[in-house]
Simulated assay, not measured.
Amino acid sequence: MNDEVYSHGHHPSVTTAHAARTVASSAAYLEPFLEAGLDVLDIGCGPGSITAGFADLVAPGSVVGVDSSADVVAQASRSYADVANIAFREGNVYDLDVPDESFDVVHAHQLLQHLADPVAALREMRRVVRPGGIVAAREADFGAMTWFPAVGELDEWRELYRTLARANGGEPDAGRRLPGWAAEAGFADVEVSSSNWIYVTVEDRRVHAESWAERVLHSAFAGQTLERGLADQRTLERLAEGWRSWSRADGGVFLMPSLEILARD
């Protein structure tokens, strides 16, 4: 994880969106299996909002959030300093500083799509889960995203994002590949489900569109796209306006599907 290139980066437009995620919105498939006393490892925890939700559900069990970014680990640590059963650490998903069979649940949300070797990451997650425990992962699928009304700039944005993500070694259509990755990592029992984020209210569309417009213009996505010569500044400005135009359209909808796995030996 330390050597990977993160296509989003940690601009406030990214971390603010990530900090709004909750167990209910992003890990509902796992929630029925979380109970008091379990120990949970949350890899790629970002600003820690899902991690903190786990801590509430499994208390007095312990929860550890791991991320490759020292800055985002520091942010999470500050945000949840008053939560007694949570800790945040900088770490590498390929080489976790954790003994074998240390956690009842090992979780990753929207992480594997950014990795050059998601199967190796899943094998490492398998190493640190206890016998009978669960490795849980949820991954979006950019190719399966859809929206209304049709906006040409959003089609361009998606293709640009997919091109950049793959140039960085990731796989933006990770959702559809997730079950196969889990099987390749050696899991004997893989339960597969899916869920969606849907942006349909006026406010949800505004927030989602503004987040992506800001990413297109100011985040690592913008810098990497310009550095690689995949787009120029004028194109990025046009794509950002396309997002804002979509958000203002009557009857607008954006559907973002994800696949989920509960993997066990």
Rank of each mutant, 00 (worst) to 15 (best):
A150W: 10
T16S: 12
E227K: 09
V98P: 02
G175D: 01
Q224L: 12
Y6H: 15
V14L: 02
R176F: 10
G9E: 11
R138K: 15
A182L: 12
V216M: 13
G152K: 00
Q75C: 04
H218I: 05
S69C: 04
G242K: 04
A220R: 08
H18A: 07
R228S: 07
E214S: 12
R177C: 12
A121L: 02
L217E: 14
R177V: 14
S219R: 08
D141W: 02
A28Q: 05
V207A: 05
E139S: 02
Y161R: 00
Q75S: 05
S69V: 04
A182W: 01
V72T: 07
Y6L: 14
Y6S: 11
T16G: 08
L115S: 05
G48W: 03
I50C: 12
S68M: 10
E260V: 06
R89P: 13
L111T: 10
G223I: 06
V202F: 02
L112S: 01
P12Q: 13
P118W: 03
E203Q: 14
T22S: 13
P99S: 07
A121N: 05
D100Q: 00
M125E: 00
L57Q: 05
T235G: 07
P32L: 04
I50W: 07
D95K: 15
V83F: 04
V5E: 13
A136K: 06
W181Y: 14
G229W: 15
R264A: 12
D82L: 13
A55G: 09
E31A: 15
W243F: 14
I261K: 03
S258V: 09
A220G: 05
D232G: 10
T51A: 11
W181D: 04
G53M: 02
D100A: 00
A108I: 08
H107F: 15
T16Y: 12
G37P: 08
Y29L: 06
R248W: 00
A20T: 11
E90K: 13
S77L: 06
A240R: 03
